[in-house]
Design a protein around this nucleic acid. Structure first.
Lengths: 224, 224
DNA sequence: GTCTATAATAGGATAGAC
DNA sequence: GTCTATCCTATTATAGAC
């Protein structure tokens, strides 16, 4: 099942025409939005003719769909893994945020144009809506458990999930997407910001930072 | 000057055709985005013919522009006022966040479809881009001063401004816009979340809450 | 101030040659 | 796998009657 425990998105050869379409479309979606980008714009950027796109993707929304899969799939997989590990709830959340920011800054395509409600409400993107709902549910589970364990103060989990997403998205918007000069500390800063808001005892933060940093540096960089 | 110290948006009669166009357009922009909403969609919702729109607004983007003015104008005016008051930096920021959320939930139109980079990059919306930049600059000024005064921990002001915006926007998305059952505590929760992340001493939070609450209840409600 | 009629263009997608 | 040619629809906006 898509976005299920054993699913992962198909590999992409970024030098192939299909890969270059995805890269160009992602940049255009980020700059002008899905509806503000025409298939001609994308084709021009890849230097092919507009109808040739439809040999690689059945429709415009399929390009967007593939990009969401590539961005969301690993995020869902990671938080599933952290949930299974024997670490504190705070550590699970800190890792989730930091690794999500790090992935978005490391991956070759720009993810800032994805996750727009107006696009996701297209009927063809039902799987992606469901996948996002799964991610949100897993985050809420961590927040709820962290509250019950006394690690977090009592905000509503739904609110926290939203607030965390807001911090995540805006951090990416600020960074200007892949290719910008990455501020290396942003993944940790974003995670620290959210955890400081949640933690009952901010004294725990230094340990979280050290643990997350150790695992962040273990992620392969520069895939693009 | 638009969005300057003495500027405020023109009053709107929400029962007039012009007002009803703004209300309908705001809801549609929130649900399907600016580019995903056609002038026909808006006209249908107001029960007039599509060309009649152009008697009230010179172009589609002028509708969007008016909505941004109505939402952003009061926000900029408020933060200017808080900057002039003799209260702590933390109080200025707490008030800014809480009152912004409260306004968005109280005003008659849905503001969730505004502030999209893809739309704001239209050349006709240069004033609105500038207005948003002014708001961001004023927020950063509060954050920077709060850090220097030792009230806030040392995050980068630009990052904090982004994170705060993310929390703001996502809080509104969660609430479902005006007309949804407003969770009365959301303005305070959003402000608390950001201030907890920033404050060196979380013990100051209770005072902030009390001060903000006193001024929030003084805002007239139910304009819609 | 709202209407009908229509201009002018841009959009996504298909057919079929090479 | 890419091309040219083209279809069909939707879109923003204008003209001019009432």
């Amino acid at each position: 099942m898509k976005y299920g425990p054993d699913w992962q998105p198909p590999e992409v050869d970024w030098t192939s025409t299909r890969g270059r379409i995805l890269l160009a479309a992602a940049s255009l979606f980020a700059a002008r939005g899905f509806f503000g980008t025409s298939t001609r714009d994308i084709a021009d950027a890849v230097q092919i003719r507009q109808p040739s796109l439809f040999h690689h993707f059945e429709a415009k929304h399929a390009i967007y769909q593939s990009l969401v899969e590539l961005d969301l799939g690993p995020s869902v997989a990671r938080i599933r893994q952290y949930l299974a590990e024997d670490i504190s709830w705070a550590a699970k959340l800190h890792l989730t945020i930091a690794c999500d920011v790090r992935q978005a800054l490391d991956q070759p395509f720009d993810s800032r144009g994805l996750y727009q409600d107006a696009v996701l409400s297209l009927p063809e993107l039902a799987d992606e809506r469901a996948g996002i709902a799964v991610f949100h549910e897993l985050v809420e589970r961590v927040v709820t458990a962290g509250c019950e364990a006394g690690e977090f103060v009592a905000f509503e989990p739904g609110f926290v999930q939203r607030a965390m997403n807001g911090v995540l998205f805006e951090t990416l918007r600020e960074q200007g997407g892949p290719g910008g000069r990455v501020r290396g500390r942003r993944p940790l800063e974003a995670a620290d910001f959210v955890l400081r808001a949640l933690l009952v005892d901010n004294g725990d933060l230094a340990d979280l930072q050290a643990a997350t940093m150790a695992r962040l540096t273990a992620i392969p960089r520069g895939r693009g």
